[in-house]
Structures are given as structure tokens and as C-alpha cells.
């Protein structure tokens, strides 16, 4: 083992340092430029990230796999180009779809929203797995119909949660893709959702993907946070300040 390492670092002085970071270090040089291998690796990462941003979530397939019936709700955004330019429209429910909430409205503890956000790949890959991991552990919670949000941002959940009459909204959303991870899912929790909530009033679990937080571990954290939010009757800074709750969460897995 130690012999192997010695040989490696004789050939590649960066052998040990490479283990310490995902950053693209010690790529070599073609003159002053990137060697072809590194150039194409970069382009592959960027292409995946762009495909994730511009791809479509297969909401039909997701609806079929979910453990509960769902409502399909559009934001006010017409297409991806508008989604990227107009975050304000992605936060609001389409006027024609508001009526769909009438049937679903009730007194709920929690509403889940699955929103496409900035990575269709993340939602396609991880959203159902996360819901599946949470569902059996939510006995005793009054759960609103699950909402599938098209062209939706995090704050879309505020209007949805209010329309459903839910005390907490949890928005599962595709995160902005990086070069090395294009399918990272995030979850945002908001107590007493209503239009105009600020990001400081939310709690976030991020980096749910194959090389990050698994759906099972994310579910542990999510259940812990949900419990804390319900107990404190607040989210965001209020929960972050509750260090005991957070400490028990981080050791929870």
C-alpha cells in the first residue's frame, strides 16, 4: 500500500493532493492551454449542467410513482427562457390553475411541492425516492395533496401552501447544476407559507444526489427539521438558532 503510494507520487507529485479536493487541479498543460482530455472533461460537465437546466421533468412518470394522488399546477411562466429571466413569475401560481386548489383545500399540517427548479435531472432522479423515504414516517401528520409545480421556484410553495391551507410547505426542487453535479435536489421548509415570505424564513437541505446526501439520510434530516418547525411554530432563523435541535439532527444518522 505504502509502496504503491510512493510510486504514484514519484510519477505524479500531486497524487496525494488530488485526494483532498474535487477541484480540477494538476491538469497538465498543452503549451499554456488545457490538454485535450481536460478540455473535453470540462465540456462534458458543462453539457450535462445545461441539459439539466433546459430539460423537462417527466411529471407524468413521477405522478404514477408517488404514494399519493397529486395535483399538477403551473406557475405563471410560459417557457424556460422566461423562467430564467423572470423569477417573479416562477414564484406565482397560474391564474387558471388556482381553481384546482378549491377541491384540495383543508386543514393540513404539511404540503409537499415537487418543483422543477433549475435541474430537471435532479427531480427526475431523486424526488420520488425522497418522498418514499419520508412517507411512512409521517404518521399522524395531516398531509395535503402533493403538488407538482411546473416552471416553479422555491417561493411558488408559499402561494400553494396558503391555497391548500397547510401550516408547513416543503418544496423539493432541482438545484442550480454545478459542473461536477448536475442532478442535485434541494428541500426548502417554510412555516405558515404565504406570498411574500423571505428566504431568511426558510430552512434548506441541499446537495441530495448520488455523491452527496442520499434520499434516506435527507429524509432523516427532513423529518427532524419538520418536527422542529412544528414544535417551534416557525422556520428559518428561528430554527437555525435552535442549536440543540440542529445538533441532534446532524448526529441523527
Amino acid at each position: 500500500m505504502s509502496d504503491e503510494r510512493a510510486i504514484d507520487s514519484a510519477r505524479d507529485p500531486f497524487a496525494r493532493l488530488r485526494q483532498a479536493t474535487r477541484a480540477r487541479i494538476a491538469l497538465g498543460r498543452a503549451g499554456d492551454a488545457l490538454p485535450t482530455r481536460a478540455l473535453l472533461d470540462f465540456q462534458l460537465g458543462h453539457s450535462r449542467a445545461r441539459d439539466a437546466v433546459h430539460g423537462a421533468v417527466d411529471f407524468d412518470a413521477i405522478a404514477e410513482r408517488l404514494p399519493t394522488p397529486s395535483l399538477r399546477i403551473r406557475s405563471q411562466v410560459r417557457d424556460r427562457a422566461e423562467y430564467l429571466r423572470r423569477p417573479d413569475l416562477g414564484r406565482r401560481v397560474h391564474a387558471d390553475d388556482l381553481a384546482m386548489f378549491a377541491a384540495g383545500r383543508g386543514a393540513f399540517d404539511l404540503a409537499f411541492v415537487i418543483a422543477d427548479g433549475l435541474s430537471a435531472a435532479a427531480v427526475n432522479a431523486h424526488a420520488v425516492a425522497l418522498i418514499d423515504a419520508c412517507w411512512p414516517r409521517l404518521h399522524g401528520w395531516r398531509l395535503a395533496p402533493l403538488v407538482l409545480g411546473e416552471q416553479a421556484r422555491v417561493a411558488f410553495g408559499d402561494e400553494v401552501g396558503a391555497a391548500l391551507g397547510a401550516r408547513i410547505v416543503a418544496v423539493l426542487i432541482g438545484e442550480r447544476p454545478g459542473l461536477s453535479v448536475a442532478d442535485s435536489l434541494g428541500v426548502y421548509l417554510t412555516w405558515d407559507p404565504k406570498v411574500g415570505r423571505s428566504d431568511a424564513e426558510r430552512n434548506c437541505i441541499s446537495n441530495i444526489h448520488a455523491d452527496g446526501l442520499s434520499p434516506a439520510r435527507a429524509a432523516d434530516t427532513l423529518i427532524g427539521l419538520l418536527t422542529a418547525v412544528r414544535r417551534i411554530e416557525g422556520s428559518g432563523v428561528a430554527v437555525k438558532a435552535d442549536t440543540a435541535a440542529l445538533a441532534s439532527l446532524s448526529r441523527g444518522d
Binding site: A23, R24, I25
Partner: peptide, 11 residues
Amino acid sequence: PGADDVMLNYQ
């Protein structure tokens, strides 16, 4: 490194 910021997720 390599134009890829692995913390801030941008190029």
C-alpha cells in the same frame, strides 16, 4: 483550478 469553482458552483 480548471475554471470550475467546486464550492460556489460556477465557472
